[in-house]
Simulated scan of single mutants.
Amino acid sequence: MRRILILGGTAWLGRATAAAAVASGADVVCLARGEAGSVAPGARLVRADRRSPHAYDALDGEWDDVVELSWDPGFVASGLDALADRAAHWTLVSSVSVYARSDVPFADENAELVEPDDLSQYPDAKVHAERLTSARLGERALLARAGLIVGPGDPTDRFGYWPARFARGGRVLTPETNGRFVQGIDVDDLAAWIERAGRRGVSGPINAVGEEYPMAAVLAAAKDASGEDGEMVPLDDPTLEAGGVQHWMGPRSLPLWLPSAARGFSRRSDAAFVASEGRRRPLSETMRRTLDDERTRGLDRPRLAGLTPAEEAEVLAGSTRP
């Protein structure tokens, strides 16, 4: 039986990866504090604080794959020190944020990376983690550069904002979508690929990204999933920016809306991912799954990304649109 160790495994992608590994018939262990949630059914939790020098003491034997989710430099280094020599394969979940430029569509894994000058910054820390992992594991290491992850359970509220917003009905404020794209990968599709890639010994850097869709198609899919007939009210960038609306994520934002200079961020090359047996479900299915989850969590709940109803009304009222 394959033995898979997930460093983390109780939060969103980690838990989905554990579930995929269990479904494949593997013996799955998750090393975590256990504060972010429970492990997937069939997986075993080893409680540990990775800040402790004894964090890995309870882990014995060899591992067919170790999946590292953290970007914390100390955690990455200590995990490698404790386990690299006992791992047949190592998967570092990295990010497309490692790339120095976001303005070039269809850039592949050979694109220039940021220099890791400030390890308190996410892109720098991920590049640092990649270099540590590659230096220690060589051809046994997969650097899974994940793009936008979407689907049920998303803690960022980026993707789910849109089907939830359409489901509430009424006039829906959107950015202008011409020339804009979205490249989200369903969390369960990414998790299934991580399990398969580890089993097959896939190595090197790979952009683990979703299919590229025009933003207009993503908004249309969100509207279709909701079953509501709300009117979309697109505003141009200067109007949104004058109204204090932020790009991409976070409070007072329109999620997935990127500035023109970053439009290549959602158009990364997926050729290596597809070649390594990356599979992605239809957008409509992910949207339905996401909306079901949003309804369960509450359409009107406070969110980490998007506009509140009051903020949306304020921006619409301040625009020149009737």
Results as ranks from 00 to 15, higher is better:
residue 256 L to S: 11
residue 214 P to H: 04
residue 266 S to D: 13
residue 124 D to W: 01
residue 6 I to L: 15
residue 13 L to N: 06
residue 269 S to N: 14
residue 165 R to K: 04
residue 116 P to E: 11
residue 142 L to M: 00
residue 30 C to K: 03
residue 30 C to A: 11
residue 121 Q to C: 09
residue 197 A to T: 04
residue 308 T to N: 05
residue 92 L to A: 05
residue 287 M to H: 14
residue 23 A to S: 14
residue 183 Q to W: 03
residue 195 E to D: 10
residue 298 G to D: 02
residue 112 E to T: 12
residue 252 R to F: 12
residue 267 R to Q: 14
residue 102 S to R: 14
residue 5 L to K: 07
residue 201 G to R: 10
residue 135 A to Q: 08
residue 188 D to W: 14
residue 154 D to N: 03
residue 53 P to S: 01
residue 58 A to K: 08
residue 206 I to L: 10
residue 51 R to C: 03
residue 52 S to P: 07
residue 42 G to E: 01
residue 305 A to Q: 06
residue 79 G to F: 00
residue 322 P to Q: 11
residue 76 V to K: 02
residue 271 A to K: 06
residue 131 R to Y: 03
residue 120 S to K: 06
residue 164 A to Y: 00
residue 27 D to R: 12
residue 273 F to M: 11
residue 114 V to D: 00
residue 223 K to H: 03
residue 168 R to S: 09
residue 190 L to C: 10
residue 237 D to W: 05
residue 116 P to A: 08
residue 317 A to Q: 11
residue 13 L to K: 06
residue 214 P to C: 10
residue 316 L to R: 14
residue 213 Y to P: 02
residue 197 A to G: 08
residue 243 G to N: 03
residue 174 T to S: 04
residue 29 V to R: 04
residue 17 T to C: 13
residue 124 D to Y: 03
residue 63 W to K: 07
residue 97 S to D: 15
residue 308 T to P: 14
residue 75 F to E: 10
residue 200 R to W: 13
residue 128 H to W: 14
residue 178 N to W: 09
residue 77 A to F: 03
residue 177 T to R: 02
residue 189 D to W: 05
residue 300 D to V: 10
residue 158 R to P: 01
residue 303 R to M: 10
residue 100 A to L: 11
residue 74 G to W: 05
residue 85 D to K: 02
residue 35 E to N: 09
residue 13 L to A: 11
residue 257 W to D: 09
residue 38 S to K: 12
residue 113 L to Y: 12
residue 48 A to Q: 11
residue 245 V to K: 05
residue 146 A to Q: 08
residue 50 R to H: 13
residue 74 G to V: 08
residue 232 M to L: 13
residue 114 V to C: 04
residue 95 S to H: 05
residue 98 V to M: 00
residue 168 R to A: 10
residue 140 R to Y: 01
residue 134 S to M: 12
residue 317 A to I: 08
residue 41 P to R: 02
residue 258 L to F: 15
residue 272 A to I: 03
residue 39 V to M: 03
residue 86 R to N: 09
residue 132 L to D: 04
residue 111 A to E: 10
residue 181 F to V: 09
residue 318 G to H: 14
residue 304 L to F: 12
residue 77 A to R: 11
residue 17 T to D: 02
residue 62 E to C: 06
residue 69 L to G: 03
residue 187 V to H: 02
residue 252 R to V: 13
residue 252 R to C: 15
residue 312 E to C: 01
residue 246 Q to K: 15
residue 76 V to Y: 00
residue 301 R to H: 01
residue 287 M to C: 12
residue 309 P to I: 07
